[in-house]
Design a protein around this nucleic acid. Structure first.
Lengths: 99, 99
DNA sequence: TGCGCATATGCGTGCAAGCGCATTTATGAT
DNA sequence: ATCATAAATGCGCTTGCACGCATATGCGCA
């Protein structure tokens, strides 16, 4: 049950959920981009990305002065299914841009 | 995004997640049964069930001195899909009884 | 070497969540 | 009426989380 709780806790926060939604396009995104798009402070974004990484949801890669985050390709299928369902639920109506 | 966050926050707590797993058999369960099965105090269980009800995940029904909870049949499909995925992930290996 | 951009982190603060205990409220049985 | 069982709730406490600010670290370029 622990892994499910870890996953759910990681997703149950607005900034992190928004970040996961963005990262779920399968591509890489640097922290500075997320900061710009989501309109949050840098330290806040950095910490939340560290939390998502800690939860095993994303992985990071250093690229010059940037750190690029992306969806963890080794995420177990059962957990990926949960996130897919969550992200899918965000596609509904006004959720496309609403906070 | 709010409804997804509400749902995720409700599930991201051990006692509530355990309760949801039990209730996801589709049948009714009174608080006293959950207290016994999950081994938690009565006030704790009562509050957590109130939280799940508040989140729209379950509904309750008074039956004599008991209050019977069950899965909310009117839960939107996108949200039900999330919970289904979560509950399904709990079926893996040792998660059957582990806390 | 020195500068600038990107990212991480130490620190202190405020707030919300979860808890147990005790009590109250419902309901039914004797 | 009294009592027993079930459930909810007021209260106070503790803890963990998220936050911003300031600073440190990593990296490339001039």
């Amino acid at each position: 049950m622990q892994s499910a709780l870890t996953l759910l806790s990681a997703l149950a926060e607005p900034t992190r959920l928004a970040a996961v939604r963005l990262l779920w396009d399968g591509r890489e995104h640097c922290v500075c981009e997320l900061v710009r798009v989501l309109g949050v402070t840098q330290s806040r974004m950095s910490r939340h990305m560290a939390a998502l990484k800690q939860a095993g949801i994303v992985i990071d890669r250093r690229d010059a002065q940037w750190v690029r985050y992306r969806r963890n390709p080794e995420l177990p299928a059962e957990q990926a299914a949960i996130i897919d369902a969550v992200v899918n639920s965000l596609k509904t109506r006004s959720d496309r841009k609403a906070a």
